[in-house]
Nucleic acid binder design. Structure first.
Lengths: 144, 144
DNA sequence: TATTGTTATACTCTATAACTATA
DNA sequence: TATAGTTATAGAGTATAACAATA
Protein backbone atom coordinates (compact mmCIF):
# COMPACT_ATOMS: atom_id res chain seq x y z
CA UNK A 1 0.00 0.00 0.00
CA UNK A 2 1.41 3.35 -1.05
CA UNK A 3 0.81 6.66 0.61
CA UNK A 4 -0.95 8.92 -1.95
CA UNK A 5 -0.17 12.05 0.06
CA UNK A 6 3.57 12.04 -0.55
CA UNK A 7 3.25 14.67 -3.26
CA UNK A 8 1.92 17.22 -0.77
CA UNK A 9 4.72 19.31 0.77
CA UNK A 10 2.59 20.22 3.79
CA UNK A 11 1.94 16.58 4.53
CA UNK A 12 5.58 15.59 4.17
CA UNK A 13 6.54 18.60 6.29
CA UNK A 14 4.30 17.30 9.07
CA UNK A 15 5.57 13.74 8.83
CA UNK A 16 9.20 14.89 8.79
CA UNK A 17 8.66 17.12 11.80
CA UNK A 18 6.83 14.45 13.79
CA UNK A 19 9.52 11.85 13.10
CA UNK A 20 12.25 14.32 13.96
CA UNK A 21 10.67 15.40 17.25
CA UNK A 22 10.07 11.82 18.24
CA UNK A 23 13.72 11.01 17.61
CA UNK A 24 14.92 14.06 19.52
CA UNK A 25 12.70 13.16 22.47
CA UNK A 26 14.25 9.71 22.49
CA UNK A 27 17.73 11.17 22.47
CA UNK A 28 16.84 13.48 25.36
CA UNK A 29 15.05 10.79 27.37
CA UNK A 30 18.18 9.82 29.37
CA UNK A 31 18.14 13.35 30.79
CA UNK A 32 14.39 13.12 31.39
CA UNK A 33 13.95 16.13 29.14
CA UNK A 34 11.74 16.75 26.17
CA UNK A 35 12.35 18.96 23.17
CA UNK A 36 10.47 21.86 24.71
CA UNK A 37 12.68 21.79 27.79
CA UNK A 38 15.78 21.78 25.63
CA UNK A 39 14.57 24.78 23.63
CA UNK A 40 13.82 26.60 26.86
CA UNK A 41 17.25 25.93 28.37
CA UNK A 42 19.06 26.95 25.17
CA UNK A 43 17.05 30.14 25.07
CA UNK A 44 17.76 31.08 28.69
CA UNK A 45 21.43 30.51 28.15
CA UNK A 46 21.45 32.71 25.06
CA UNK A 47 19.53 35.47 26.85
CA UNK A 48 19.95 35.22 30.62
CA UNK A 49 17.37 37.22 32.53
CA UNK A 50 14.60 36.70 30.01
CA UNK A 51 11.21 36.43 31.71
CA UNK A 52 8.99 33.44 31.19
CA UNK A 53 6.44 35.51 29.31
CA UNK A 54 9.15 36.62 26.90
CA UNK A 55 10.28 33.04 26.40
CA UNK A 56 6.70 32.12 25.67
CA UNK A 57 6.41 34.83 23.05
CA UNK A 58 9.60 33.68 21.33
CA UNK A 59 8.75 29.98 21.33
CA UNK A 60 5.05 30.66 20.80
CA UNK A 61 4.05 28.95 23.99
CA UNK A 62 1.09 30.48 25.81
CA UNK A 63 1.85 32.28 29.05
CA UNK A 64 -0.36 29.83 30.90
CA UNK A 65 1.55 26.87 29.50
CA UNK A 66 4.90 28.29 30.53
CA UNK A 67 3.98 27.93 34.20
CA UNK A 68 4.32 24.14 34.56
CA UNK A 69 7.39 24.12 32.29
CA UNK A 70 9.24 26.69 34.39
CA UNK A 71 8.06 25.07 37.63
CA UNK A 72 9.37 21.71 36.54
CA UNK A 73 12.85 22.95 35.64
CA UNK A 74 12.90 25.12 38.74
CA UNK A 75 11.99 22.12 40.89
CA UNK A 76 14.99 20.28 39.44
CA UNK A 77 17.21 23.15 40.52
CA UNK A 78 18.24 24.16 37.02
CA UNK A 79 16.95 27.69 36.84
CA UNK A 80 16.87 30.61 39.21
CA UNK A 81 14.38 33.47 39.30
CA UNK A 82 15.48 37.02 40.11
CA UNK A 83 12.73 39.59 40.53
CA UNK A 84 12.86 42.40 38.01
CA UNK A 85 9.75 44.11 39.35
CA UNK A 86 6.76 43.16 41.44
CA UNK A 87 5.26 41.06 38.68
CA UNK A 88 8.01 39.24 36.85
CA UNK A 89 11.35 37.54 37.32
CA UNK A 90 14.34 37.19 35.05
CA UNK A 91 15.36 33.58 34.52
CA UNK A 92 18.94 32.35 34.85
CA UNK A 93 20.61 28.97 34.72
CA UNK A 94 22.04 27.64 37.96
CA UNK A 95 25.36 25.82 37.84
CA UNK A 96 23.42 22.55 37.83
CA UNK A 97 21.40 24.04 34.99
CA UNK A 98 24.52 24.88 33.03
CA UNK A 99 25.76 21.35 33.59
CA UNK A 100 22.63 19.73 32.23
CA UNK A 101 22.55 22.23 29.40
CA UNK A 102 26.03 21.17 28.31
CA UNK A 103 24.81 17.61 27.96
CA UNK A 104 21.61 18.81 26.31
CA UNK A 105 23.54 20.82 23.78
CA UNK A 106 25.73 17.85 22.92
CA UNK A 107 22.61 15.79 22.24
CA UNK A 108 20.91 18.54 20.23
CA UNK A 109 24.03 19.20 18.15
CA UNK A 110 24.47 15.52 17.34
CA UNK A 111 20.78 15.30 16.56
CA UNK A 112 20.82 18.27 14.21
CA UNK A 113 23.96 16.97 12.51
CA UNK A 114 22.31 13.59 11.94
CA UNK A 115 19.27 15.33 10.51
CA UNK A 116 21.17 17.40 7.99
CA UNK A 117 23.28 14.38 7.02
CA UNK A 118 20.18 12.77 5.58
CA UNK A 119 20.03 15.45 2.90
CA UNK A 120 22.28 15.00 -0.14
CA UNK A 121 25.26 17.34 0.27
CA UNK A 122 24.31 19.32 -2.82
CA UNK A 123 20.93 20.24 -1.35
CA UNK A 124 22.08 21.10 2.19
CA UNK A 125 22.58 24.82 1.56
CA UNK A 126 18.88 25.08 0.68
CA UNK A 127 17.52 23.36 3.77
CA UNK A 128 17.34 26.34 6.12
CA UNK A 129 16.25 28.87 3.47
CA UNK A 130 13.43 26.57 2.40
CA UNK A 131 12.30 25.78 5.93
CA UNK A 132 12.36 29.47 6.85
CA UNK A 133 10.34 30.26 3.74
CA UNK A 134 7.78 27.56 4.54
CA UNK A 135 7.48 29.01 8.02
CA UNK A 136 7.09 32.60 6.84
CA UNK A 137 3.81 34.47 6.61
CA UNK A 138 2.27 34.21 3.16
CA UNK A 139 3.32 36.70 0.50
CA UNK A 140 0.44 38.98 -0.53
CA UNK A 141 1.54 38.72 -4.16
CA UNK A 142 3.45 36.14 -6.14
CA UNK A 143 7.11 37.24 -6.11
CA UNK A 144 9.08 36.63 -9.30
CA UNK B 1 14.43 39.67 21.57
CA UNK B 2 15.75 37.30 18.90
CA UNK B 3 15.22 33.59 18.72
CA UNK B 4 18.66 31.96 19.00
CA UNK B 5 17.37 28.63 17.71
CA UNK B 6 16.76 29.76 14.14
CA UNK B 7 20.00 28.16 12.97
CA UNK B 8 18.75 24.70 13.91
CA UNK B 9 16.99 22.98 11.00
CA UNK B 10 15.13 20.64 13.33
CA UNK B 11 13.74 23.54 15.28
CA UNK B 12 12.69 25.47 12.18
CA UNK B 13 11.20 22.26 10.79
CA UNK B 14 9.02 21.97 13.89
CA UNK B 15 7.96 25.62 13.84
CA UNK B 16 7.15 25.48 10.12
CA UNK B 17 5.12 22.33 10.54
CA UNK B 18 3.19 23.65 13.54
CA UNK B 19 2.35 26.91 11.78
CA UNK B 20 1.32 25.06 8.66
CA UNK B 21 -0.94 22.60 10.48
CA UNK B 22 -2.54 25.38 12.43
CA UNK B 23 -3.31 27.23 9.22
CA UNK B 24 -4.67 24.11 7.53
CA UNK B 25 -6.92 23.40 10.51
CA UNK B 26 -8.28 26.94 10.23
CA UNK B 27 -8.99 26.47 6.54
CA UNK B 28 -10.77 23.19 7.26
CA UNK B 29 -12.71 24.53 10.23
CA UNK B 30 -15.78 25.54 8.14
CA UNK B 31 -16.19 21.84 7.30
CA UNK B 32 -15.61 20.92 10.95
CA UNK B 33 -12.67 18.81 9.84
CA UNK B 34 -9.10 18.68 11.05
CA UNK B 35 -6.01 17.82 9.07
CA UNK B 36 -6.12 14.19 10.18
CA UNK B 37 -9.64 13.80 8.86
CA UNK B 38 -8.62 15.29 5.53
CA UNK B 39 -5.67 12.91 5.22
CA UNK B 40 -7.95 10.01 6.03
CA UNK B 41 -10.57 10.96 3.43
CA UNK B 42 -7.95 11.54 0.73
CA UNK B 43 -6.44 8.16 1.50
CA UNK B 44 -9.74 6.29 1.35
CA UNK B 45 -10.55 7.89 -1.97
CA UNK B 46 -7.18 6.91 -3.39
CA UNK B 47 -7.53 3.34 -2.13
CA UNK B 48 -11.17 2.39 -1.60
CA UNK B 49 -11.60 -0.70 0.53
CA UNK B 50 -8.55 -0.07 2.68
CA UNK B 51 -9.13 -1.21 6.27
CA UNK B 52 -8.70 1.17 9.16
CA UNK B 53 -5.67 -0.72 10.42
CA UNK B 54 -4.02 -0.29 7.02
CA UNK B 55 -4.82 3.42 7.04
CA UNK B 56 -3.27 3.62 10.49
CA UNK B 57 -0.10 1.96 9.25
CA UNK B 58 0.20 4.35 6.32
CA UNK B 59 -0.46 7.52 8.32
CA UNK B 60 1.35 6.16 11.38
CA UNK B 61 -1.70 6.43 13.58
CA UNK B 62 -2.07 3.73 16.21
CA UNK B 63 -4.83 1.19 15.65
CA UNK B 64 -6.43 2.32 18.89
CA UNK B 65 -6.47 5.93 17.77
CA UNK B 66 -8.13 5.08 14.47
CA UNK B 67 -11.29 3.99 16.26
CA UNK B 68 -12.68 7.40 17.26
CA UNK B 69 -11.56 8.91 13.94
CA UNK B 70 -13.41 6.32 11.88
CA UNK B 71 -16.41 6.42 14.20
CA UNK B 72 -16.67 10.17 13.86
CA UNK B 73 -16.60 10.19 10.05
CA UNK B 74 -18.92 7.20 9.98
CA UNK B 75 -21.37 9.00 12.27
CA UNK B 76 -21.43 11.89 9.82
CA UNK B 77 -22.38 9.48 7.07
CA UNK B 78 -19.26 9.95 5.01
CA UNK B 79 -17.80 6.47 5.02
CA UNK B 80 -19.21 3.02 4.67
CA UNK B 81 -17.81 -0.24 6.03
CA UNK B 82 -18.00 -3.47 4.06
CA UNK B 83 -16.91 -6.62 5.83
CA UNK B 84 -13.94 -8.34 4.21
CA UNK B 85 -13.79 -11.07 6.84
CA UNK B 86 -15.00 -11.60 10.37
CA UNK B 87 -12.48 -9.17 11.79
CA UNK B 88 -12.14 -6.25 9.45
CA UNK B 89 -14.02 -4.04 7.03
CA UNK B 90 -12.96 -2.23 3.91
CA UNK B 91 -13.71 1.48 4.04
CA UNK B 92 -15.43 3.37 1.22
CA UNK B 93 -16.67 6.90 0.76
CA UNK B 94 -20.42 7.39 0.60
CA UNK B 95 -21.79 9.91 -1.88
CA UNK B 96 -21.98 12.42 0.97
CA UNK B 97 -18.37 11.52 1.70
CA UNK B 98 -17.35 12.16 -1.88
CA UNK B 99 -19.12 15.48 -1.73
CA UNK B 100 -17.32 16.65 1.39
CA UNK B 101 -14.07 15.27 0.01
CA UNK B 102 -14.43 17.48 -3.08
CA UNK B 103 -14.62 20.53 -0.85
CA UNK B 104 -11.81 19.18 1.30
CA UNK B 105 -9.59 18.66 -1.69
CA UNK B 106 -10.22 22.19 -2.91
CA UNK B 107 -9.13 23.53 0.48
CA UNK B 108 -6.08 21.28 0.69
CA UNK B 109 -5.00 22.14 -2.85
CA UNK B 110 -5.28 25.85 -2.23
CA UNK B 111 -3.48 25.40 1.06
CA UNK B 112 -0.60 23.49 -0.48
CA UNK B 113 -0.34 26.01 -3.29
CA UNK B 114 -0.15 28.87 -0.81
CA UNK B 115 2.53 27.00 1.10
CA UNK B 116 4.77 26.41 -1.88
CA UNK B 117 4.26 30.00 -3.05
CA UNK B 118 6.15 31.18 0.01
CA UNK B 119 9.30 29.58 -1.32
CA UNK B 120 11.30 31.56 -3.92
CA UNK B 121 10.57 30.02 -7.31
CA UNK B 122 14.20 29.01 -7.79
CA UNK B 123 14.11 26.84 -4.67
CA UNK B 124 10.73 25.18 -5.21
CA UNK B 125 12.07 22.13 -7.05
CA UNK B 126 14.09 21.27 -3.95
CA UNK B 127 11.25 21.47 -1.43
CA UNK B 128 9.90 17.95 -1.75
CA UNK B 129 13.29 16.25 -2.16
CA UNK B 130 14.58 18.00 0.95
CA UNK B 131 11.50 17.28 3.03
CA UNK B 132 11.55 13.63 1.96
CA UNK B 133 15.23 13.43 2.87
CA UNK B 134 14.64 14.98 6.28
CA UNK B 135 11.89 12.45 6.86
CA UNK B 136 13.99 9.47 5.74
CA UNK B 137 15.66 7.02 8.08
CA UNK B 138 19.26 7.98 8.83
CA UNK B 139 21.98 6.86 6.46
CA UNK B 140 24.39 4.42 8.12
CA UNK B 141 27.32 6.13 6.40
CA UNK B 142 27.90 9.61 5.03
CA UNK B 143 27.01 9.45 1.31
CA UNK B 144 29.17 11.53 -1.05
C1' DT C 1 -5.60 50.13 31.17
C1' DA C 2 -2.19 46.74 30.17
C1' DT C 3 0.94 43.09 31.67
C1' DT C 4 2.78 39.05 34.58
C1' DG C 5 2.13 35.11 36.68
C1' DT C 6 -1.22 31.96 37.91
C1' DT C 7 -5.28 28.52 38.23
C1' DA C 8 -8.55 25.87 36.11
C1' DT C 9 -10.18 23.67 32.28
C1' DA C 10 -10.74 21.43 27.88
C1' DC C 11 -9.50 19.52 23.53
C1' DT C 12 -6.33 17.23 20.41
C1' DC C 13 -2.79 14.06 19.55
C1' DT C 14 -0.19 10.32 20.91
C1' DA C 15 1.06 5.93 23.38
C1' DT C 16 0.33 1.50 25.85
C1' DA C 17 -1.93 -2.35 27.83
C1' DA C 18 -5.44 -5.49 27.63
C1' DC C 19 -9.61 -7.72 25.92
C1' DT C 20 -12.60 -10.25 22.09
C1' DA C 21 -13.23 -12.44 18.04
C1' DT C 22 -11.46 -14.06 14.32
C1' DA C 23 -7.61 -15.84 11.08
C1' DT D 1 0.05 -17.57 17.23
C1' DA D 2 -0.99 -13.44 14.97
C1' DT D 3 -4.23 -9.83 13.54
C1' DA D 4 -8.43 -6.40 13.61
C1' DG D 5 -11.12 -3.79 16.16
C1' DT D 6 -12.05 -2.13 20.54
C1' DT D 7 -11.89 -0.06 25.41
C1' DA D 8 -9.67 2.38 28.83
C1' DT D 9 -6.25 5.29 30.26
C1' DA D 10 -2.39 8.38 30.52
C1' DG D 11 0.84 11.75 28.93
C1' DA D 12 1.95 15.58 26.00
C1' DG D 13 0.84 19.84 23.62
C1' DT D 14 -2.20 23.51 22.97
C1' DA D 15 -5.99 26.97 23.82
C1' DT D 16 -9.11 30.11 26.44
C1' DA D 17 -11.12 32.45 30.32
C1' DA D 18 -10.54 34.50 34.51
C1' DC D 19 -8.23 36.33 38.64
C1' DA D 20 -4.77 38.99 41.74
C1' DA D 21 -0.92 41.80 41.91
C1' DT D 22 1.55 45.16 39.75
C1' DA D 23 2.93 48.57 36.06
Amino acid sequence: MKDPLLELPGYVLKRASAANLSELNQRLAPLRLRHGDAAFLLLIEASPGTTQSEVGRILEIERANMVPLVARLDARGWIEKRKVDGRSSGLFLTSAGRSVLARTRAIVDEHEAALIRRVPAKLRPYVLPILMALWSRPDPEEPK
